[in-house]
Simulated assay, not measured.
Amino acid sequence: MNLLKKAGRPNQMPVRFERKGSLRRLAAKGFLLIVLIAALSGCSIGSELLNDHSVEPLQKEATLRVIFLDVGQGASQLLIAPSGQTLLIDAGNNDKEQTMLDYLRKYGITRLDKVIGTHPDADHIGGLDKVIDGTAIGDIYLPKASSNTKTFESLLKSIQRKGLKVKTAKAGVQFDMGEGVRVKMVAPVKSYSDSNNMSAVVKVTYGSHSFLLTGDAESQSEKDMMASGADLRADVLLVGHHGSKSSTTLAFLKAVEPRYGIIQVGKDNNYGHPTPTVLQRLKKQGVEVYRNDTQGTIEVDSDGRNLSIRTER
């Protein structure tokens, strides 16, 4: 059991979590104490344990929640701003459609203000059609990259049924999510024949903290991002292309200077992700790594000054 803040109540602090051993001792003293704490803090009792890896205690003001959903060998990030506005980037593979709907229900999401499909690969947009079908959607962004797959066709049909107009995801596009949360796309800078390099790369800034969410952008896109003069520095980096050696070049890593790297990867994959080359590169640069395959869903919270990192296991 754990305590989780409802998405619809953004001004509450996420509750601090203790290690599993400590929780067992607490449980031995009485479950009623946990219920009392939940009642006093205004939080709900959730279904999963998130282990706390807090860097510093968060301040009492509202937090930005960046949740790296465990969708196996795929990618999906859910952002919940202090204002209550929401952003979903990607939605895993086709077999994760129900998983995505369950996640949205768990976090109390009935409307997504913004949706970004980074590029047409199935492991990124496979679940988006059902998300669009079952959720109120504000704006949707896709790069100018197409695919002749049934997955991409299904996504377009869902967009059409909802009467949505697709906005182009490209470098320079920006919007805010209220309460000082700014979102800016830093890629794709150009057009590429490779769909991975067409990935929308999104930088999210809140106070003194930034997140760089890279989709499957590879070395060519990374090079063009650096050449564009965009400020790529970020505290948290979504490691490109699930940790493939085609992404996260040393030059790019030095430009970003992340403190933490998140790898969205499945336990069983035939790609060798994440590659030893990238893991070693991250280690040498002093980047602390978190992975969906070993730690489940990963949530990074920021109040604009401090970070808190929580994992499912």
Rank of each mutant, 00 (worst) to 15 (best):
S22E: 13
R24Y: 12
V236G: 01
P258K: 13
H124K: 09
S193L: 11
L64W: 03
M185K: 05
L32P: 05
K6I: 09
R313E: 15
T214A: 12
G134N: 14
V202Q: 06
L282V: 04
N292K: 06
L250A: 13
K267A: 14
P274H: 06
P14H: 06
S208R: 15
K60R: 15
H119K: 07
H209Q: 13
L78Q: 04
S22D: 10
P57K: 15
K165T: 00
G126W: 05
Q85W: 04
R16H: 10
I140A: 01
L128R: 02
A200N: 06
G180P: 06
I298K: 04
R259W: 06
V71N: 02
K29S: 12
L213R: 01
T99A: 09
A171E: 07
S154R: 14
Y192E: 02
A81N: 05
I89Y: 01
V71L: 08
V202T: 15
A122C: 09
M100C: 06
S22Q: 12
N306Q: 14
I159Q: 01
G207C: 05
Q85D: 00
S308A: 15
D293M: 09
N148I: 14
N269S: 09
L36Y: 10
S219K: 15
V236H: 06
D176V: 08
K184I: 13
L26P: 02
S247T: 03
K245H: 14
L79H: 10
L23W: 09
Y260W: 11
I137C: 00
V278N: 03
